[in-house]
Every structure is written in structure tokens, then in C-alpha cells.
Simulated assay, not measured.
Amino acid sequence: MLIGYARVSTADGRQSLDLQHDALIAAGVAQDQIYSDQASGKKDDRPGLHACLKALREGDVLTVWKLDRLGRSLHHLVKTVTLLTERGIGLRVLTGQGAAIDTTTAAGRLSFGIFAALAEFESELIRERTMAGLTSARARGRKGGRRFALSKAQVRLAQAAMANRETSVTSLSKELGIRPVTLYRYVDSTGQLRDYGKRVLEG
């Protein structure tokens, strides 16, 4: 069975799903087998897509107008299609850059394999750039990772203040420019150091 999915980026009427619906129906997808969303492709919360993926069964073919209607990114797309393939479900793209993809055919699987290889290549490039950036930062005396909200002096101040039972946590947090929940990451209610506090003083 052919199952269709359509998406437009806005829900304010400036874009219409009609073009995609018409293309899917022309490709053989029944009107009642088309799922859709009006949301950004970068959003995780796409109920139409979730319902579509849930409805698909082994032997079905997920049909989309363009490749970018399905995935948030190249990596998300590859992951989604790989999971579909493992379930015995095909993918067919009607137009655009991914029009050669039809994972129910050998040629289509080859095309998607190229996309998957590009995704892996992109991931490796990002990892290499990240590692190179960290190495360069360390050479200049900077370390990667989370920046702490409190300095060493502020942690010591928090220790002393919290050891005093009359200290107002709200007032102390305001003085330090942080929220109470953040303060408790550094010291407990008696002024004892917690993980973040220890890491600041050790650093």
C-alpha cells in the first residue's frame, strides 16, 4: 500500500498542502492515506509524521513530494529511512533533488546509499572540525566544555553564606546573579560543596 506524507512550514495560510496532496494522489496514493503537518521541518513535534510512521506496515511504500518534506536534516532523514528499511517499508520521492530515490528498486537503494554516505561524511567533518577547534583552544590556554555560572570567589562566598542558617537563598541567588536551583548545583543547604562547586575550585 502507498502511504503519503505532506508538510508545509507554516500554519498561517501562506502555504498550502494542496500541491503536495495532488501530486501524491496522482502517484497513486489514496486521499485517506495521506498524513500531513503544518510545522517547521526542524520541529520534533510533528503529529502527522508520527501517525504516518505508526500506520506503515511491512510492504508499504512511504511516498513524499520532496525529500525535505520528510527529514529535519540529512542525518534525521537517513536514520528515518534506515528504520523504515529495517521494517520492510520502502520510500519513494516524487520530485526535487531526491527524485531518484525509490528504495523499492535497486537503483533507488543505490541513490539513497549515496545520501547515507554523504551524511556519514558530513558527520565526520563536523567531528574533525570540533576536535581541531578544541585542540586550538587548548593551545591558547582555553578548555572546552560547560562554562560555570560562578567563579571561585563566588563559590567560596556561597559556601560561607549557606553555612549561616539565617541566609536567604533567594537573596543570595539574586546577589550572585543566578537562580536558586543553580545555586544548589554548587553548594547544599549547609554550605557543603556539590559537584559543580568542587569542579570550579579544583579548576
Score class of each variant (00 low, 15 high):
Asn164Lys: 15
Ala137Val: 06
His76Val: 04
Arg127Gly: 08
Thr104Cys: 05
Val169Trp: 02
Arg194Thr: 11
Leu150Gln: 05
Ala132Gly: 00
Ser189Phe: 12
Asp44Asn: 15
Gln154Ser: 00
Leu17Ala: 12
Gly144Lys: 00
Ala139Tyr: 05
Val64Ala: 03
Arg179Ser: 15
Ala119Phe: 11
Gly98Arg: 06
Asp32Cys: 10
Asp18Ile: 07
Ile101Gly: 12
Ile178Leu: 06
Thr170His: 10
Cys52Glu: 13
Thr104Met: 08
Glu58Ala: 12
Asn164Gly: 14
Arg14Trp: 03
Asp22Ser: 14
Leu17Gln: 07
Arg199Pro: 04
Arg165Glu: 12
Ala160Lys: 15
Gln154Arg: 01
Tyr196Val: 09
Gln159Pro: 01
Ile178Thr: 13
Ala163Cys: 11
Lys79Ser: 13
Cys52Thr: 14
Leu176Val: 04
Arg14Thr: 13
Glu124Trp: 05
Ile3Pro: 13
Lys174Gly: 09
Tyr5Asn: 05
Gly177Asn: 12
Thr10Lys: 15
Asp195Pro: 06
Arg185Thr: 05
Arg129Met: 04
Ser40Trp: 12
Val29Leu: 02
Thr10Asp: 06
Phe115His: 10
Ala160Val: 08
Thr105Gln: 11
Leu172Ile: 01
Ala106Leu: 15
Gly133Arg: 00
Arg7Leu: 03
Gln159Asn: 05
Arg14Gln: 14
Gln192Met: 09
Leu17Phe: 05
Val64Ser: 09
Tyr5Met: 11
Tyr5Leu: 04
Ala137Thr: 02
Ile25Lys: 15
Gln38Asp: 07
Asp60Cys: 01
Thr104Phe: 00
Gly88Cys: 10
Val78Ala: 08
Asp12Leu: 03
Val61Met: 07
Ser73Phe: 02
Ser9Lys: 11
Ala132Ile: 05
Thr182Ile: 04
Leu62Ser: 06
Gly48Arg: 13
Arg194Phe: 10
Ser16Cys: 00
Leu62Cys: 09
Arg7Phe: 09
Asp45Thr: 04
Tyr35Lys: 03
Glu166Thr: 11
Ala132Arg: 15
Glu166Pro: 00
Gln97His: 13
Gln15Thr: 14
Thr82Gly: 12
Leu2Ile: 08
Leu118Asn: 11
Thr80Val: 01
Leu67Val: 08
